[in-house]
Computed example of a mutant assay.
Amino acid sequence: MIANTTSREILQHRSRCPKPFVREFPEFVTLRYPVFDPIRSIHTSRWVFYKKLGKDLFYMDEFTYTLRTYTLTELVEMAENVGWRLEAAYHNLGTLEPPHPEGSPINTVFRNKVTA
């Protein structure tokens, strides 16, 4: 089972926003700058952290991470290549809603072909 994992389509869509994603917490603020490479299916995100002191923000630190993202189709192909088959795929595990054409989190159930 792969549960609630981001898909290539979701990250590609989020990366189209030219502005950073801002998230405010009681004591700090984060800015996220996503970049998506559609040729290599690589998502890179730089997070910058600021401490809040009154109405001022003070730089704390930052980090960057890189993810190789997959489509549902790619994951099914990889699973089949090692002897597994897709049993079910869902947009939402709570409702068992099927995947959306425009993109869904990856929620899948695989079964070993030998024992199926």
Rank of each mutant, 00 (worst) to 15 (best):
F58Q: 10
K52D: 05
F110Y: 15
F58T: 04
H43G: 08
V109E: 07
H43M: 08
E24F: 11
R40F: 10
S41F: 02
V22T: 15
M60D: 05
I39M: 11
F36Q: 00
L67S: 08
D61G: 02
T44K: 14
F21N: 05
P99K: 00
Y65N: 00
L53Q: 10
D56Q: 13
Y70N: 07
H43Q: 10
P98W: 15
W47V: 14
F36D: 01
T71P: 06
T95E: 05
V109H: 07
G94S: 11
T71E: 02
V109K: 15
V82M: 00
E80W: 04
Y50K: 06
N81D: 11
E27T: 14
E102Y: 11
L93I: 15
S41H: 09
Y59N: 06
R111M: 14
R85K: 14
E87N: 11
L96V: 03
L31D: 05
R32W: 09
N92M: 01
P98C: 07
V35W: 08
N81R: 13
E27V: 11
V48E: 12
P101S: 09
M60L: 11
L57C: 08
N81A: 15
G94D: 02
V82A: 04
R46T: 03
L67E: 12
F28P: 01
Y65S: 06
E27C: 13
I106M: 13
S45P: 03
T30G: 02
E80I: 01
F63M: 10
H91E: 01
F58M: 09
R68E: 10
K113S: 15
D61I: 05
I39Y: 15
V22G: 11
P26D: 15
N112M: 14
Y65C: 06
T30M: 14
E27I: 07
Y50G: 03
P26F: 12
F49Q: 07
I42H: 09
F110G: 12
K113Y: 02
F25V: 06
K51F: 04
V76N: 02
Y59D: 05
T66P: 01
R46V: 04
E87D: 14
E27G: 09
E24Q: 12
L72R: 03
P20R: 04
E74S: 03
K113N: 04
T73P: 05
H43C: 07
E102S: 14
Y90C: 00
K52R: 10
E87K: 14
P34T: 03
E62D: 10
L67A: 04
V35A: 12
F110C: 12
L72P: 05
R23S: 14
V109Q: 13
F36W: 11
H100N: 13
Y65I: 07
E102K: 13
H91P: 01
V29L: 15
F63K: 06
P105H: 11
I42K: 03
T69E: 01
Y90H: 01
W47A: 09
H100V: 05
I39S: 15
M78S: 12
T66I: 07
V22L: 15
E74R: 02
T69P: 05
L31P: 04
V22K: 12
T95A: 13
T71K: 04
I106P: 15
